[in-house]
Amino acid sequence: MTDVCKKCGGEMLVYRTGPHPWRTGYEVQRSECTERKAQAARTTATDRKAR
C-alpha cells in the first residue's frame, strides 16, 4: 500500500500497522517517505473499507 508524500511527492510506504488506542474496528498506519524520510500516520478501518 502506497501514498504520496505531501511535502515532496515521493512514495510513502507503510512500515507499521497497529490497533487504534480507543476506536474499536480501526487501526493506525505509520508510513515513511522514500525520498525525504518524512513520516506520517493515519487512521483506517480494519476491514479496509471506507466508513
Rank of each mutant, 00 (worst) to 15 (best):
A50K: 05
T43H: 07
R48W: 00
G25I: 01
T34G: 14
D3P: 01
T17W: 03
E35W: 00
P21L: 14
P21G: 13
C5F: 08
C5W: 12
V14A: 14
G10K: 05
A45Q: 05
V28F: 12
A45V: 07
D3W: 09
R51G: 12
M1E: 00
L13S: 10
C8S: 09
E35A: 11
C5H: 13
S31P: 02
C5N: 11
R36C: 13
D47V: 01
H20W: 15
Y15T: 03
R48N: 03
C33H: 04
S31M: 15
D47H: 03
T24V: 09
R48F: 00
T46Y: 01
H20C: 07
R42I: 08
M1P: 00
K49C: 02
D47R: 03
G25P: 00
R16Q: 15
L13G: 05
M12F: 01
H20D: 15
G10E: 04
K37E: 02
K49Y: 02
V4W: 06
A50N: 06
T2I: 04
V28S: 05
E11G: 02
T43G: 05
D3N: 08
Q29K: 06
V4S: 07
R23H: 11
A38Y: 01
A50W: 03
V28I: 15
R23A: 15
C8H: 11
M12Q: 11
K7D: 15
T17F: 07
R36D: 15
K49G: 00
A40K: 05
C8D: 15
K49E: 06
E27R: 14
R23M: 13
E11S: 03
C8A: 09
G25Y: 02
M1G: 03
R23G: 06
W22V: 07
C5M: 11
Y15C: 10
G10I: 01
T43D: 10
L13A: 14
C33S: 08
G18N: 15
K49F: 02
C8L: 09
P21T: 12
K6S: 13
A38G: 12
L13Q: 11
R16I: 07
T44W: 03
M12A: 04
T44S: 09
K37F: 09
A45K: 07
P19H: 12
A45P: 08
C33R: 04
K37H: 05
H20A: 08
R30A: 12
C5I: 02
T43N: 10
P19D: 15
T46P: 00
T17D: 07
Y26E: 14
E32P: 01
T44N: 09
V4R: 14
G9V: 04
A41V: 14
R42T: 12
Y15R: 09
R36L: 13
M12S: 04
V14K: 08
G10S: 06
H20P: 09
V28K: 08
V14M: 06
K37C: 12
G9Q: 11
T46Q: 02
P21I: 10
R36S: 13
V4Y: 13
T44I: 14
E35D: 09
